[in-house]
């Protein structure tokens, strides 16, 4: 099995799920499953838009490191992470995670791992804008930390340690 280098992009523009999926399988016959996660902007509490700020340079590096970790933990044939920045209105896609592997379990687990770690380890910050003109910064959530920490346990279990 040959491993393709992860594709990582931080961009203002939308992404094309079908085209990105096709790119992960193009020209190879060893891919048995593709898993995808698309995060969308939800209209909670009268939200008018989310404004995503990032740290150019560090954000790409942080995502690359998370993708390397996924490739080290699961036998992926490829993975793609695209995260948007700028002003995004409800319904707009924010983030795409795609993983490809010979078998479904690796693709599905790695996809969940990537979005959990992205949420807690990639430098992005969300500001919410509301219809009345008010705005607030989104606060980090304990449940996101908990979701990310389950992969610490999973790695420990694989090594035979007690979490």
């Amino acid at each position: 099995m040959s491993r393709a280098a992860p594709t990582i992009r931080v961009q203002a523009e939308p992404f094309d799920l079908a085209a990105e999926s096709a790119a992960l399988a193009a020209g190879r016959v060893d891919v048995g499953g593709l898993a995808s996660f698309v995060g969308l902007c939800r209209a909670d509490d009268g939200l008018a838009a989310l404004v995503l700020e990032h740290y150019p340079g560090m954000t790409e590096r942080a995502i690359a490191r998370i993708a390397e970790e996924a490739c080290a933990r699961w036998p992926l044939t490829g993975c793609t992470v695209i995260h948007r920045h700028g002003r995004l209105e409800p319904g707009a896609p924010i983030v795409l995670v795609l993983t490809a592997s010979a078998h479904r379990a690796a693709a599905l687990e790695a996809c969940a791992f990537l979005i959990d770690w992205l949420k807690t380890r990639a430098p992005f910050w969300k500001r919410e804008e509301f219809a009345g003109g008010t705005e607030r910064w989104v606060e980090a959530k304990a449940e996101d930390d908990l979701a990310a920490s389950r992969w610490d346990d999973a790695a420990a279990a694989r090594r035979g340690e007690t979490p």
Binding site: M58, V95, K119, A122, P123, F124, V138, A140, K141
Partner: peptide
């Protein structure tokens, strides 16, 4: 790279400060 409070800083470094991250 993410850095703890006791991480060294030197002239020429690029140091950034920000809230806990909220992407994804």
């Amino acid at each position: 790279d993410f850095a703890a409070p006791d991480a060294p800083v030197r002239p020429g470094d690029e140091v950034a400060f920000f809230p806990p991250v909220t992407g994804g």
